[in-house]
Amino acid sequence: RIRTTFTSAQLKELERVFAETHYPDIYTREELALKIDLTEARVQVWFQNRRAKFRK
C-alpha cells in the first residue's frame, strides 16, 4: 500500500473532528470517510497517528 497524501480540505475536516473528540466512534469515522472520500481504515489510522502526535 502506498502512503496516503491528504488534501488540505481532508486535513481541515479531520482536524475539525479531532478537536471535538480524539476517539471518534465507527459511525463518526465512516461518515467522515464518505464525506472526505477516504476509506474508514485510513481515517482510523490518521486518528491513531494524530493522538500519538498530540501526546508528544
Results as ranks from 00 to 15, higher is better:
Val17Met: 07
Leu11Phe: 00
Arg3Pro: 15
Ile2His: 11
Leu38Arg: 05
Pro24Gly: 01
Leu14Lys: 03
Arg51Ala: 05
Ile36Asp: 02
Glu30His: 09
Gln48Glu: 13
Gln44Trp: 04
Glu31Lys: 10
Val43His: 03
Glu31Asp: 13
Arg50Tyr: 07
Val45Ile: 11
Leu14Thr: 00
Phe54Gln: 13
Leu14Met: 08
Tyr23Asp: 10
Gln44Phe: 10
Thr5Glu: 14
Thr7Lys: 06
Thr28Arg: 14
Ile26Ser: 12
Leu32Gly: 01
Arg3Tyr: 10
Glu15Cys: 06
Asn49Gly: 08
Asp25Glu: 04
Arg51Glu: 00
Arg51Lys: 05
Pro24Gln: 03
Lys56Gly: 05
His22Thr: 04
Gln44Arg: 13
Gln48Leu: 07
Glu20Val: 11
Ser8Tyr: 05
Ile36His: 08
Thr21Ala: 06
Gln44Ala: 12
Lys56Glu: 14
Arg3Leu: 12
Ile36Gln: 05
Ala52Lys: 08
Phe18His: 01
Lys56Thr: 09
Glu15Pro: 02
His22Gly: 03
His22Ala: 10
Lys35Trp: 02
Ala9Ser: 10
Ile36Tyr: 10
Arg51Ser: 04
Arg16Asp: 10
Tyr23Gly: 03
Lys56Ser: 15
Lys12Pro: 05
Ala33Phe: 00
Thr28Asp: 05
Tyr27Ala: 15
Lys12Met: 10
Glu30Met: 11
Thr5Leu: 09
Gln48Ala: 14
Thr4Ile: 11
Glu15Ile: 00
Thr7Tyr: 01
Glu30Phe: 06
Glu31Ala: 15
Phe54Glu: 15
Gln10Met: 04
Glu20Gln: 13
Phe47Lys: 06
Ala9Cys: 06
Val17Trp: 00
Tyr23Ala: 04
Leu11Asn: 08
Val45Pro: 05
Thr7His: 03
Ala19Gly: 11
Ala9Met: 09
Lys53Tyr: 06
Asp25Met: 01
Phe6Asn: 05
Phe47Glu: 00
Arg29Tyr: 06
Thr5Phe: 08
Trp46Glu: 00
Leu14Ala: 03
Ala9Gln: 12
Thr21Glu: 08
Ala9Ile: 10
Thr39Ala: 08
Leu11Asp: 10
Asn49Pro: 05
Glu40Gly: 05
Val43Lys: 05
Val45Ala: 13
Asn49Ala: 14
Arg50Cys: 06
Phe6Arg: 02
Glu20Cys: 07
Gln44Asn: 11
Ala9Asp: 09
Leu38His: 04
Glu15Arg: 02
Arg3Glu: 15
Phe47Arg: 01
Glu13Thr: 04
Asp25Gln: 02
Tyr27Pro: 11
Arg3Asp: 15
Leu34Cys: 09
Lys12His: 10
Ala9Thr: 09
Tyr27Arg: 15
Leu11Gly: 04
Phe54Asp: 13
Ala33Cys: 07
Val43Trp: 01
Ala9Asn: 11
Asp37Ile: 02
Arg51Asp: 07
Glu20Tyr: 10
Phe47Thr: 02
Pro24Trp: 02
Ala33Tyr: 01
Ala19Ser: 10
Leu38Thr: 14
Val17Gln: 05
Thr5Cys: 11
Lys53Trp: 07
Glu20Gly: 06
Phe54His: 15
Val43Phe: 00
Asp37Gly: 14
Gln48Asn: 12
Gln44Thr: 11
Ile2Val: 11
Val45Ser: 12
Glu40Phe: 03
Lys12Cys: 07
Arg42Glu: 15
Leu38Val: 14
Arg1Ile: 10
Thr5Tyr: 14
Asp37Ser: 11
Thr21Gly: 07
Tyr27Met: 14
Ser8Asn: 08
Phe47Leu: 06
Val17His: 02
Glu13Val: 05
Ala9Lys: 09
Ala33Arg: 06
Arg29Ser: 04
Trp46Met: 02
Thr7Val: 04
Phe6Cys: 08
Gln44Leu: 09
Glu40Asp: 06
Asn49Ser: 12
Arg1Asp: 15
Ile26Asp: 10
Phe18Asn: 06
Val43Gly: 02
Glu15Thr: 02
Lys12Trp: 06
Gln44Tyr: 09
Phe6His: 15
Arg55Met: 13
His22Ile: 02
Lys35Asp: 04
Lys53Leu: 12
Trp46Asn: 06
Arg42Ser: 15
Ala9Tyr: 06
Lys12Ser: 12
Arg3His: 08
Thr5Ser: 12
His22Glu: 09
Thr21His: 06
Gln48Lys: 14
Leu34Tyr: 10
Ala41Gln: 13
Phe18Ser: 05
Leu32Pro: 02
Thr28Gln: 15
Asp37Phe: 00
Thr5Ala: 10
Val45Leu: 12
Lys12Tyr: 08
Arg55Phe: 11
Leu32Tyr: 04
Ile2Glu: 15
Glu40Ile: 07
Arg55Asp: 08
Ile26Trp: 10
Glu30Arg: 14
Glu20Pro: 00
Thr21Asp: 05
Thr21Val: 06
